[in-house]
Amino acid sequence: MNPSPPPRRSFGAEVVTGVGDAFRPVVRLLDRFGDHVILLARSLAWLPRRPFRPANYLEACEYIGVGSLPIVLLVGFFTGAVMGLQAVYAFRQFQLESFAGGTTGKALAVELAPVLSALMVAGRSGAGIATELGTMRITEQIDALESMAVSPLQFLVLPRLIAGMLMAPILSLLFFIVAMVGCYFLAVVVQHVDHGQFVLHTRDLLTTTDVAQGMLKSIVFGLIVTLIGCYQGYNAAGGGRGVGLGTTRAVVFSSVTILISDYFLSDILLRVMSSDTGVR
């Protein structure tokens, strides 16, 4: 065989293709982002429309909230305990171990509780949502809903998005409370830090603003997890394998998105509602 030489192309055309190639991943990312925004907007548009189907919302809340509760509590307790342990050891050098509760509490309230509980929800409920909707998509149950004049966005997607935004902050708050219990247990019971000092410094350092910041973040994280889960499920294709891939993607994408958006959310929240001790 004699392969024909590639057609000659102008320098300009080469540059245009080259630049296009270089930006393709970025374009794809923006494309995907846009798809998620469209799914969100189209679902929210159903919010004020009848019928409201409270049962679907309750079921979604139960699935996301109650379902993720045990693992959130378990991880919460041990996170608080290990943070307390590290803080006590670090502060002991300066005889300041009674500050362990306050510093740990701040970190937990603002960062660790919302982020870690959201990661737990992503692993459990986000994956579950992607699998459930994905299975419904490939077995034509979503088409069946539509054929019966029921909007799958209103029936399936919207309740999950709302439930995510409601449940994530509650889970985060519970995570925080259990983690503080873990921290107290480690510091006061195990490491014999003085109870009165511990409580006093915790009260001094930890503010309601910190807790509020954490919960605000959680609302966004809850939306991210459920939106990505729903997107992957709703757009599933390619049989059981496709559903599996979608589930994996849901967990990976939502985890990464949580961690990245946490940075930007923190930045914004520190500016608009920084507590007394923030760096400005």
Binding site: T135, M136, T139, E140, Q141, D143, A144, S147
Partner: peptide
């Protein structure tokens, strides 16, 4: 009314 090829009943 649509009867799907693989039934598409809600599991």
């Amino acid at each position: 009314g649509l009867v799907f090829q693989f039934s598409a009943l809600f599991d």
